[in-house]
Nucleic acid binder design. Structure first.
Length: 424
RNA sequence: GUGGCCAUCGUUCAAUGGUUAGGACCGCGGUUUGUGGAGCCGCAGAUGAGGGUUCAAUUCCCUCUGGCCACCCCA
């Protein structure tokens, strides 16, 4: 087969996956609506510099995964496809003066994101995140609200065993000292480390904590924990969050070695995981506090927190567990006809049924009536209306396999609607 | 970006260094001329792309493209 195909890592969503994605997204909006979050739709591209500043120029997301757009015409700045949603949300917060709204500003969006990465199951170059942000409140209470919202969303979808793995990554006052102690711990064993881990030791020792190397994992077990090195404020905040979540009843596991990929996180950091899942599919989402980001992007010093949950991975997990909702794709009523030249009537009648609130479609073929009935049955239709040669209509109940006598149009349409609506 | 496995009709599976690459499902048509998921009959539909080896390649080799797995990283 020659010709075009979808580019690597970019996929078509066909039924039933297309409906499942839409459903998961609808549920995300609804969950946030119910908690009083304001919807925000953000552009799919931003200035490249926004991401470089927010995410960190040396991070993989910017250094090698950013889709940069070719500059066009008189564009003054270079654009990039968004690799994450938080930077844009914070940019919007600053740009629209949301600091003058009651704090925190609660925002929700569903964002299609792009990262130039090697595709794998559950990981695509275009993917979708349910993104929730609360900007302007530094207390542990908002942490509880946000963490719980994400957990409840996943649980209510049917992923009842979702776990929250929680950690604190400290702040600019205490993290640097911890990083140094970590470096000091691993440096004596440097020659035993793999090439990858050696470079991590110099560039970002925190990453050693989730190394896959068995030897390193063993050594990590005795490594200093950040939760033992937090400054007083961070420790108090962390303790309050842990205690609060216990009260709320969210399943929380202390994860003192959890590190997150984006540079801007401070203090509270967490992930939503499914136990038993290996590899990429298990991590459904994650979040964290980013108390320095608003200021970093040019706004006033403002604490904030948010999470991102991967819709693609949620749908994958639901699919593997057989929890995908089934949505009937076919119409409830099919309008068939004996004579081929009745198609216009059929289309008109189907439209009338839809206007009245039913789902209906015309059979626009010139096939024999037997074929039309057969295809209606296979489409899962509840009833068929047959246009007779004399223009009158016959209502056929496909479940009872019974059929009324031909009658006038308005009468039959009313009867069809009654039949369908009686069953909800 | 690194390493590995893989690639046949829309789907799912066969087969082969040598005439027309086979089945099932799906689709379309027929089943004697207007009423149901079955049955029967028929039709359509594929070796991902490009090179190479060979008398001959879908089969062997290379490149590309895409999928999957591990790593990197992350959702």
């Amino acid at each position: 087969m020659s010709g075009f195909q979808s580019p690597r890592g970019l996929r078509d969503l066909l039924e039933p996956l297309a409906s499942a994605h839409g459903w998961a997204i609808d549920r995300a909006w609804a969950a946030a609506d119910a908690a009083g979050y304001a919807r925000i739709e953000l552009p799919i591209a931003e200035e490249s510099g926004l991401f470089e500043r927010a995410v960190g120029g040396t991070s993989d997301i910017v250094a090698k995964e950013l889709y940069r757009l070719e500059p066009r015409g008189d564009d003054a700045v270079s654009l990039a496809l968004r690799p994450e949603a938080t930077a844009g949300a914070v940019r919007a917060y600053i740009q629209h003066g949301m600091r003058s709204q009651p704090q925190p500003v609660r925002l929700v969006t569903v964002a299609h994101l792009f990262r130039y990465d090697r595709p794998q199951k559950g990981r695509y170059r275009q993917f979708t995140q349910f993104d929730l942000e609360a900007i302007g409140d530094g207390g542990p209470g908002i942490d509880l609200e946000v963490i719980e919202l994400g957990a409840a969303y996943l649980r209510n979808l049917g992923l009842s065993d979702v776990q929250v793995h929680l950690n604190s990554v400290g702040c600019s006052a205490c993290r640097p000292a911890y990083v140094e102690s970590l470096r000091a711990y691993f440096t004596p064993a440097m020659h035993e480390l793999s090439e990858v881990d050696q470079s991590r030791l110099t560039a970002n020792p925190l990453r050693l904590l989730d190394s896959k190397d068995p030897a390193v994992i063993k050594r990590v077990a005795d490594a200093p924990l950040i939760t033992d090195h937090l400054c007083g404020d961070c420790a108090a905040h962390h303790a309050a969050v842990m205690a609060g979540l216990a009260t709320i009843g969210v399943t929380v596991l202390a994860a003192p070695r959890l590190v997150r990929g984006l540079d801007y996180y401070t203090r509270t950091a967490w992930e939503y995981l499914l136990p038993g899942e290996q590899g990429q599919q298990g991590a459904l989402g994650g979040g964290g506090r980013y108390d320095g980001l608003v200021e970093l992007l040019g706004g006033p010093a403002t604490p904030a927190i948010g999470f991102a949950i991967g819709i693609d991975r949620v749908v994958l997990a639901l699919e593997e567990r057989g929890l995908l909702p089934v949505r009937a794709v076919g119409a409830t009523i099919v309008v068939a006809g004996i004579e081929p030249d009745s198609v216009a009537d059929r289309v008109a009648i189907a439209s009338q049924l839809r206007t009245a609130g039913s789902s209906a479609r015309a059979d626009v073929s010139s096939r024999k009536i037997g074929r039309q009935l057969e295809s209606a049955v296979r489409d899962g239709a509840r009833a068929v209306i047959i246009v007779e040669p004399d223009g009158r209509l016959t209502l056929r109940d496909l479940v009872k396999a019974s059929q009324a006598e031909p009658a006038e149009r308005s009468e039959v349409i009313a009867a069809a609607l009654r039949l369908v609506q009686n069953e909800g």
